[in-house]
């Protein structure tokens, strides 16, 4: 126990205390710019959220972003992992190239996509214009109907490699004997995929769904760099809402309360995935 004390002390200082303290301040009206007025408000910071239209708008946009992103990531990663599970010339090079988006830092990724989507000199406009798909440069991020999907696209591009690797590990763990037996039994390619491959990939899928959902719900960098929550409130998601409340408005009490709501929602979703997908593994 004595040997564990230093580790416990460090963990207590850098993990337990900040978490406990943030929970503590979520019960206060703590605004840094009003240092002498920090009354205890109990659950008010939490109950106020129920009537906060901007908060619920942000929740809805976060759900939409997560749903689109995670679905796309899972599907694309499935297809790519099936491809990389095959033996073909150039497979190793393709596997290496696939890792590039994953290796790019989030902020660099966001800046890259900001250039790609730019309405004046963006690569997307340049490409579509040269291919005659558009007759004039389009406003991408400034179009409220497209913004969230375009940010989701940048997020998917970054996240697919990791999801692919996780699914590929599941694929590699399937014994070839099972496929041989299925072939002997007369199973078609589709039947082998549905009855052998997919069930064996469930642990990988579970991991991908939990991890990517958590990442999508909490994602901030792309929203910060690409749109700052705009145009209007088109990309004003929960993580952005918390950032504005905490670091721009310097309302640490309500910001902490929102962070706890986000954390609880993330845990609840993860639990839901484990309960629904995990029980069948």
């Amino acid at each position: 126990m004595l040997f564990l004390a230093p580790v416990m002390a460090v963990l207590g200082a850098v993990a337990v205390f900040p978490i406990a303290y943030s929970l503590y301040i979520s019960f206060f009206s703590m605004k840094l710019t009003r240092p002498n007025r920090t009354p205890f408000v109990g659950l008010k910071n939490y109950t106020d959220l129920l009537a906060d239209e901007a908060f619920w708008g942000a929740v809805w946009r976060t759900v939409s972003f997560s749903l689109v992103s995670v679905t796309a990531i899972a599907l694309i990663a499935l297809l790519v992992s099936l491809l990389l599970n095959q033996e073909f010339r150039g497979r190793r090079i393709l596997s290496t190239i696939l890792l590039v988006p994953w290796a790019i830092p989030y902020v660099a990724n966001a800046l890259m996509w900001k250039w790609i989507y730019d309405s004046s000199y963006g690569a997307l406009n340049g490409l579509l214009y040269q291919l005659d798909f558009i007759d004039k440069y389009m406003v991408w991020l400034g179009d409220q109907d497209k913004t969230l999907f375009l940010i989701a696209n940048a997020f998917v591009w970054k996240e697919v490699p990791l999801a692919t690797i996780l699914l590929l590990v599941s694929l590699k763990s399937i014994p070839s004997d099972i496929y041989s037996a299925a072939r002997v039994d007369g199973a078609t390619v589709w039947q082998r995929f549905v009855h052998v491959t997919l069930p064996a990939m469930k642990p990988g899928f579970l991991l991908v769904m939990i991890y990517e959902t958590m990442m999508a719900i909490r994602h901030f960098d792309l929203f910060f760099i690409l749109t700052e929550g705009g145009p209007g409130s088109a990309s004003h998601v929960l993580s952005w809402h918390i950032y504005v409340e905490t670091f721009r408005n310097l309302s640490f009490g309500s910001g902490a309360a929102m962070s706890y709501v986000l954390a609880i929602a993330t845990f609840a979703l993860s639990y839901l995935f484990i309960r629904t997908l995990g029980r069948r593994i």
């Binding site: 710019t33 409220q144 929550g229 145009p231 209007g232 721009r248 309302s251």
Partner: peptide, 22 residues
Amino acid sequence: TPWFGEWNDTNGSAWQSAILGN
């Protein structure tokens, strides 16, 4: 004013929403 920072973001979004036709 002391509340300028809190108001400013919402005001900006409101102007943008009008420009976007919402």
